[in-house]
Design a protein around this nucleic acid. Structure first.
Lengths: 160, 160
DNA sequence: ACCCAAAGTGTTATAAAGTATCAATACGAG
DNA sequence: CTCGTATTGATACTTTATAACACTTTGGGT
């Protein structure tokens, strides 16, 4: 298995596909993918990196808006609730979801050198954690798994 | 298995034991457990809850100090590097480590009602995540696993 | 005992991240 | 059309975190 985010891939297609899914979801589930929300999703999709709310804000404002912090936070909250984006706790940032069709407990792989963030899935990890929660009588509602290290590319380049 | 943090337990002993371990580690590994650092560890040990740096600061200053933010952050950084405390990303907070003897990849169970934070361990989850990282050619260095939900007590009380 | 370098602390200032509030507006079900 | 709800705009503020620099303590070498 290779994880495309860390390598070259058809990024235009990657974006188009996500937007398409978002629109389909919006149509079928009554979500309101307003212009700002849609634009924020596009901005997130432009990079496989976590962007902070203020990064988003900067980019919105570079396009002529006069947006204030709540604008970014509201759009990001909408997107995360809709499963179209995820918050990366470790980075106080957000990434577009790369598998918005299906609900899932994502595992993020954060390269500390190139800052790329890849979304993987690990049913085994999810199951193990569910079992642990169960064993200690804890009723699990949400799960954050974030891994930090080096992506293959950076590791081969002998990153410090 | 029961997780003591969510239930009654001999907390005084729990604190004493951790401080003792910290001192032993300091002696054997050349760590400098200075008065402020030690006091911060004690403060963290007082509750099985995540405290923010500014909570710590407040408590230090309630005791007559005139500490500024960097004082708290420095002590917390020392403690986390030494493995005596952990940062809980989800809460922007810190908890004392409940198993400071051995290095480990902790799993935090965060009760969203009573705010208690329990530290569990799941070798299976760690192994699954390591396998996932390996599969995508990612070289893992650190791993954050944080679970949110309800502890048994709060769940039984019919928490919302 | 004395000096030095490294580690630790105090202090000031500021950056970065996130939220409360309220007025104005757009939207869509009836 | 119109009423109620969701969304947006705008102002101000809180919380979290760090940079920078001077000063102090500590422990090893001589």
């Amino acid at each position: 298995m290779k994880i495309s985010v860390f390598d070259d891939h058809d990024h235009a297609r990657c974006i188009a596909c996500s937007i398409e899914t978002a629109e389909a979801r919006a149509a079928s589930e009554g979500l309101r993918l307003t212009p700002t929300r849609r634009r924020v999703l596009e901005i997130l999709l432009e990079e496989h990196r976590a962007l902070g709310a203020y990064d988003i804000l900067e980019r919105l404002n570079a396009e002529g808006k006069r947006a204030q912090p709540p604008t970014a936070y509201r759009a990001l909250e909408f997107l995360t609730r809709a499963g179209l984006a995820h918050r990366v706790e470790r980075l106080n940032g957000y990434v577009a979801c790369t598998a918005p069709e299906s609900p899932h407990a994502p595992v993020f792989m954060i390269c500390r050198k190139c800052r790329a963030v890849a979304e993987a899935a690990s049913d085994a990890a999810g199951a193990a954690i569910a079992a642990t929660a169960d064993a200690v009588d804890f009723s699990l509602e949400a799960c954050v798994i974030e891994v930090e290290g080096l992506c293959g590319e950076c590791a081969r380049q002998g990153a410090v």
